[in-house]
């Protein structure tokens, strides 16, 4: 029997998404119930979404990233789940997208939702400047001025990116002004030594050439958030790429700091939505 007092996380799967299991594990670690449900089953019964407080759009290669990464996934959300998604948002619930999930949110318009229009694409995630998929760890810092509930209280993070199309491009000045002034840039790539934002040309700290060093974006409410780096890639301290060195130095964390993202979402939902 489901515990009615527990935060419930819905994780759609299928069509080449592939981070659903570790993501579910992460939310369970954070104290929530997490269900992996094939997206076709949600399309068949959109009412399913009413039972959940958090929608987690995971990473992967939905539809092979054919045409453009996340594009077909985005269309599926838009054309097949548009109404229930809008309802989910209107009810003050939470949505998070990681990597491919973020790409789908951007391309369906769910993010950055300038003027709270969740159906118009104003930003894109396009080919990395390096022209290739890369798996590497990046340093991140959050924007203290952001109202994003997912990054609240987090100063810095160290996480893996694994993508070929993660470069943020913004449609025009208006969109740029709008997302900057409302603190929607929640997460930046950063330079470890200086702590500065890693700008377009600061490869590999900015791994893809993202505009303004953007690694994650939120909507104006701060409840809807997407990021290219994988928080769920650092849940065990032994996921750290140099953990044997940290162990020797005595600085190995007890749990992977990536979990802080999931804990933020679950805590918010527990306080406001359950």
């Amino acid at each position: 029997m489901a515990d009615n007092n527990k935060v419930k996380v819905l994780i759609p799967s299928g069509y080449g998404l592939n981070c659903e299991e570790e993501t579910a594990f992460g939310y369970r670690m954070a104290g929530a119930d997490a269900d992996i449900v094939h997206i076709n089953d949600i399309i068949e019964k959109p009412g399913t979404m009413d039972d959940y407080h958090i929608l987690a759009l995971v990473g992967g290669f939905s539809d092979g990233d054919h045409i453009a990464s996340g594009k077909v996934h985005a269309n599926r959300l838009k054309y097949r789940l548009g109404e229930p998604l809008q309802k989910f948002i209107d009810e003050g619930k939470l949505i998070i997208g990681v990597c491919n999930g973020f790409q789908a949110m951007i391309k369906s318009g769910i993010l950055p939702a300038v003027g709270k229009d969740y159906a118009r694409q104003t930003v894109t995630l396009t080919y990395n400047d390096s022209g290739k998929f890369e798996d590497r760890w990046v340093h991140l810092k959050s924007n203290p001025k952001s109202n994003c509930i997912w990054t609240a209280g987090i100063d810095r993070l160290y996480l893996p990116v694994r993508h070929g199309e993660g470069k943020v491009r913004i449609q025009d000045e208006n969109v740029l002004n709008s997302i900057t002034s409302s603190g929607q840039i929640a997460l930046y790539y950063s330079i470890p030594e200086s702590g500065e934002i890693a700008m377009e040309k600061d490869y590999p700290h900015n791994p893809n050439g993202s505009a303004l060093g953007i690694a994650g974006l939120a909507d104006p409410t701060g409840r809807i958030f997407g990021m290219m780096p994988h928080w769920e890639g650092f849940m065990s301290p032994y996921n750290h790429p140099a953990w044997t060195r940290l162990k020797r130095e005595g600085t190995l964390p007890r749990e992977g700091p990536g979990l802080a993202i999931a804990r933020n979402g679950v805590r918010y939902a527990a306080e406001r939505l359950v």
């Binding site: 592939n18 981070c19 594990f25 990473g59 998929f133 798996d135 694994r162 890639g233 044997t244």
Partner: peptide, 13 residues
């Protein structure tokens, strides 16, 4: 580097 060696969050060494 172009091979994803971390999806599934399993990699330790």
């Amino acid at each position: 580097r172009q091979y994803d060696h971390e999806v599934k969050a399993l990699s330790v060494v």
